[in-house]
Amino acid sequence: MKKNQLMEKVIHGIFLVLGLITVGCVLLITIYLVISGIPAIREIGLVDFLFGKQWASTATEPKYGILPFILTSIYGTAGAIVIGVPVGFMTAVYLSKMASPKVKSVIQSAVSLLAGIPSVVYGLVGMLVLVPGIRKIFNVPDGASLLAAIIVLAIMILPSIIKMSITALDAVPKEYEDASLALGATPIETYFRVSVPAAKSGIAAAVVLGVGRAIGEAMAVMMVAGNVPNMPDSLFQSVRFLTTAVSSEMAYSSGLQRQALFSIALVLFMFIMLTGATLNFFLKRERE
């Protein structure tokens, strides 16, 4: 009896420690990012840093404005959402409500496969197919552009949007749909006027999840966006994202430049925290 209780306590303790390790990691990363991100912002000035339009870290008179990266990340993510969400959402409605079980299982495996493809492969295919394609179709000097990044990101966020939306749509009680059909509504009408509204917070969460994935993606966009710190004035501009701004210079950076990279990481971290909080908000509402 006593021995059993002791055992319980020990196991309980082990699990608690494991849980605390996770919390500790998050805290450590946050604190580290804040501590290492602040000095450069102090030195450059918050406004000059966030709203400066020019990034020239290796010039004799270096400029550390990250507005191009911030805007590129926002435009790139927004573009991916504008393309990816309607496609993913429609796919989810089709799979959850209309497709036969056989079709559903085939497409769902394809979606899972898409989710498992490493981002470097997306980047590679983008480089070999999309970039030259854009150059030819739009007749621009370089296809590596914001547009290419948007398309790649849109495809990359599809799996999470589809999966989350399906989960939300599958959870809609069949009674609602029956009631609608029994009133003489067609199945399609029923899905869009009853099932989708009933699943809306789950679908919203799917969108936020897509935003999180798109904003944090580095490898694929580095390969297809051109990776030049331009302001994203047009879809065909070669651009650099927040993520790739950090990774492309980290290896050879030093001094203030290196500190500025940490500050960029901090800004990115804030963005991702914000999407995470939004996601939690929607998931909580879904549960209620």
């Binding site: 009680p173 009674e175 609602y176 029956d178 009631a179 609608s180 029994a182 009853v194 509204p197 009933a198």
Partner: peptide
Amino acid sequence: FQKPNPFPM
């Protein structure tokens, strides 16, 4: 229906 099933609206 058997179970009251108003729409969530």
